[in-house]
């Protein structure tokens, strides 16, 4: 069995265990997601994917620009920074 498949199998067993724990646990909150077994697992997966995809899209659309210089690494003044 390859390393990746082994990791996947281990993760699946762990996920199944935690979902089983959900069935045994007494839910704390009143909302529907507290009573849905495995909700946090799905929320973690989907939430992470949403954060990455949305952030990257925002970065490409507006928030990111190419590095201007090696200034960041060596502490030299930023050449385009008008307040330096």
């Amino acid at each position: 069995m390859s390393r990746a498949r082994g990791t996947l199998a281990g993760a699946t067993v762990l996920a199944a265990t935690t979902v089983a724990l959900d069935l045994l646990a007494h839910p704390h909150g009143d909302t529907w997601w507290h009573h849905t077994p495995g909700f946090d697992l799905i929320f973690g997966f989907v939430g992470c994917a949403v954060i990455v995809i949305v952030s990257k899209a925002l970065g490409k659309a507006a928030l990111q620009r190419p590095e201007r210089s090696a200034a960041d690494s060596n502490g030299a003044a930023d050449p385009e920074d008008l307040t330096t």
Binding site: L14, A15, T18
Partner: peptide, 23 residues
Amino acid sequence: YTLDHVAGSLQLLGGTALAFWWL
């Protein structure tokens, strides 16, 4: 350290780790 807190946290972290691996 209630069962639902611990299980929920582990699921959340596990789901995040899976998505990280994917992305």
